[in-house]
Amino acid sequence: MAAPTTAPATSNGNRFLILFDFDETIIAENSDDAVVRAAPGQRLPDWLMALYREGHYNEHMQRVLAYLAEQGVAEDAIRAALEKIPPTPGLAALFHFLRAHEHDYEAVVVSDANAYFIETWLRRFGARPLFRQVFTNPAGFDGAGRLVLRPFHAHSCARCPDNMCKQVILREYLARRLEERGGRAFQQVLYVGDGANDVCPSLALGPGDVVFPRRDFPMHRLLEAAAGGGGAGGGPGPLKAQMVPWSSGEDVVACLQTLVKER
C-alpha cells in the first residue's frame, strides 16, 4: 500500500476524528478538471476521453497527465491552475473552527485525487498543518518533468473504484490510532464528503458517529436512497450514523460546536 503523506503528530487526546474528501468538499470543484484548463485549448481531445473505463478513473488520469506532459504543460502551469481553485463556501470558517479546537479534533484527508494536487492546494491555502495525514494516490514529477500518478492500493471491495476503497483506509486508520492512543477510541468519527465513493466509508460508521454529505451531490442522494430502502439489489446498505447534509462549511461548524459543548 502507498504511504500517506503525514504532518507532525498531534496529541493523542483528541476526542473526535473528522475525515474530509477533497474534490468538491474542501475545494469548490474537481481538481482534475481545473488542471485540464492548463491543456491546449483548455480541453482534452475526444480520442483521450473515449479511452475512459468506468471504475478505472485513476488509469484515465494517468493518461491525462501523460498527455499534458506531451503537450509541454510544465509544473508551473499545473501548480498555477491548482492554486486558483477556490475553497467551498464556508470552508474558511470550518478550518478556523478546527484550528481553534485543535485539542478536540484530529483531521484527516481521504481522497481519490492525488498527493501533488492536494498538498499544493492545502499549502497555498495555509491549511496543511490542520491534517494529521492525507490518504490519496501518490503523484510526483519525474526527471522528464512529467507528473506521474499511481494507484493508492489494491482491495477487494466491489463497491469502490479499483485503486481506492475509502472504507478500507478508514478501518485501518482507526485500528492503528486505537493502538497508538493506548486503547482509547475516539468519542465520535465524523465524515465530510460529496461523492459516490464517500458512501462506502460512511456505511462503516456507527450510530454515535456523524456523516456530512454535501447537499444534492451524489453522496447525499445515494445515502437518502439507502435510507428509503434503495439499498436493495446491490446498492448502498443501511446508514447507521447520523446524517447532517451541508451546503456551506458553516453548516458543519454549527454541528461541531454542539459536539464540543457536550462534555
Rank of each mutant, 00 (worst) to 15 (best):
W246F: 01
E59W: 05
S156Q: 13
R214Q: 02
N30L: 12
M1Q: 11
A241Q: 00
P236V: 02
A185S: 08
P89R: 05
L19C: 14
S111M: 04
A139M: 01
A2S: 14
A93G: 10
V189P: 05
I78D: 02
A144R: 15
M243H: 05
A38F: 01
I85C: 09
V73A: 11
F16Y: 07
E70T: 03
R176G: 12
V148L: 01
S247P: 00
L98F: 13
R150S: 11
T136A: 15
N137H: 05
N30M: 09
R214K: 10
G126F: 04
L130K: 06
H153C: 05
Y67M: 05
L51M: 09
P8Y: 04
A100E: 15
A9Q: 05
D216F: 10
G249E: 00
V35P: 11
E119Q: 15
F97S: 05
L94M: 12
A81S: 14
Y116E: 13
E180H: 03
N12Q: 11
A69P: 06
R177S: 12
V148H: 01
D23A: 01
I18D: 03
A241I: 02
N58P: 02
Q62P: 08
V199G: 12
R214M: 13
L222K: 02
F212K: 08
D104R: 04
M243C: 08
G55W: 06
N12A: 13
M243Y: 02
G208E: 06
N163H: 10
F125A: 13
L222T: 00
D209H: 07
D251Y: 02
N58C: 14
A92M: 00
L147S: 02
L149M: 14
R214N: 04
W47N: 10
P86M: 07
Q187N: 07
D32N: 13
R123K: 12
V109P: 00
D216G: 06
R263K: 12
V244H: 10
A69M: 07
R150D: 10
A204Y: 05
A115D: 13
E179S: 11
G126T: 12
G145H: 10
L130Y: 14
E179M: 11
A232K: 08
E29A: 14
A196Y: 15
K166Q: 10
E75Y: 06
F186M: 06
R132N: 01
R123Q: 15
V110G: 03
W246G: 00
T5S: 14
C157I: 04
P89A: 14
H153R: 14
N12V: 04
H96T: 12
A185M: 01
K240G: 11
C157P: 08
R171W: 01
W121S: 07
Q257M: 13
H103R: 14
L94D: 03
C157Y: 07
G208D: 15
R215S: 10
H220P: 08
A7H: 13
P89D: 02
M61F: 06
Q133A: 15
G195H: 06
A50T: 02
V36N: 04
A28G: 13
S156D: 10
F20L: 04
H103P: 04
C255L: 02
L223R: 08
A196F: 14
A80W: 03
Q242V: 13
A232G: 08
G13V: 01
E70N: 11
K84T: 08
G229D: 05
C165Y: 09
M49D: 11
C160H: 09
A196N: 12
L190Q: 09
G228Y: 00
D104M: 00
H103S: 15
T6L: 11
A100T: 08
